[in-house]
Design a binder for these strands. Structure first.
Lengths: 131, 131, 131, 131
DNA sequence: GTGGTCTAGACCACA
DNA sequence: GTGGTCTAGACCACG
């Protein structure tokens, strides 16, 4: 999986890292149960400090996206059960996005299509292949 | 228009302010061409520093959401022409949101419905009243 | 409030710090809404690194014990409503404590008395003085 | 006796093991003088490293919970005499628990009841069958 | 060899 | 002046 960080940006490195891994999990690029690179490995690859990677991993662990097994490092969490209720925080973020889209001049139909496109890139295991 | 800031939160005050004004514009709560309160006025109302409000206004101006006329203060920008192409940045943010939603266990249909609900609260002037 | 760290121990410094602050909040030694010392201040006082204090504060923030106001630093969270249901984690920890006490030869009556003593040192605002 | 370890957790495996054995002793699930499985046996059963089990046993021995007879393997220590004085360390741990409980909004009566429930699951041999 | 912890010192964003 | 972020380098606990 390719990770690209913009060193000169407003978003903290650890957050960029966290975001890209979240997307990687959702798209299936990082398969469920797949082992993530070690902290040191990833830090080396990206040319950043181990503690920065550490912080990203801690965040992901805290949010439940990954689990850290002391024996084998970090891996992607097992899929969550189907849950139709969005968190309030997510809803608020979505509202902001849609507000911006609306002002930019994007109509709802176009937006829906855009969402569909993005969704189709996700490998969400919640519809058919879930136990 | 009601603005509520959480003083003790991770999101910077100026960004919360900017976000709520953007939503206000999209929902029509802040009518197009409407005059915004002065920096000092708003800072007083919210009990925060003028520099913070100033920063939010600067950001909004830079992003094109408002125009600052030296004689009349700040006001909401006129509507943009219909433009079906989303900015890459918006697309990226949307991707992150959808990724999180997918992992949370929200299916595309539910998500679409959620979007529709939010869109219906927006007064997007791009479909009928296009100049 | 006095904080004493054992530098040569198994418990990480940031955790010792976190624990003592939690106790300080419960006993009322750190009054509700009271401002905590700044990260740098405390780090200097204790002779440890700022990042260690930072980590303790982050933990406390994440757990809801304190709130961090960007304008005035960290302060103790407002009291929680009366809630008779203990978290499962707390229950498990308590079970371990009681197991150890039982093996040590402490009978239930003695234990109850011990709890009462400790509780009497707490300034829990949940019984009378709550809105 | 059933032992369940969470491989992906913050608590070290050897400590989880130690804790569960302590609880097992207190509840009487592991009867006094009962022989514990060998290090290798237990390691195999749990699918973990022998060193991890070894460490847990060493800790338990050092704390006086078990005795290791070179000829017969490890077994639970004989009951301690009735001793109403808690160790300072236990008292400190209890203080932390109670502090958290108080902040969580649990009142002393509820807490006492919780303790009683847990105590009733213990088979403390110090009240009646004292030698 | 893994992640976790800690240090000293630096720079930046926020208000 | 506050907390937040990042670095380079080190040591330790865990398994």
């Amino acid at each position: 999986m390719i990770i690209s960080l913009q060193l000169a940006g407003d978003i903290p490195l650890y957050e960029q890292l966290r975001n890209q891994i979240v997307v990687g999990i959702a798209t299936g690029e990082l398969a469920r149960e797949e082992k993530l690179p070690t902290v040191r490995q990833l830090a080396d690859d990206l040319g950043i400090n181990t503690m920065t990677v550490n912080k990203a991993y801690s965040l992901l662990k805290q949010e439940g996206y990954i689990v850290v097994d002391r024996r084998h490092g970090a891996k992607v969490s097992p899929p969550k059960p189907h849950n139709p209720e969005p968190s309030p925080q997510l809803e608020e973020e979505l509202q902001l996005i849609i507000a911006q889209a609306a002002i930019q001049g994007i109509d709802p139909i176009r937006f829906q299509k855009l969402c569909s496109n993005i969704f189709s890139r996700m490998a969400y295991p919640h519809l058919n292949e879930e136990r």
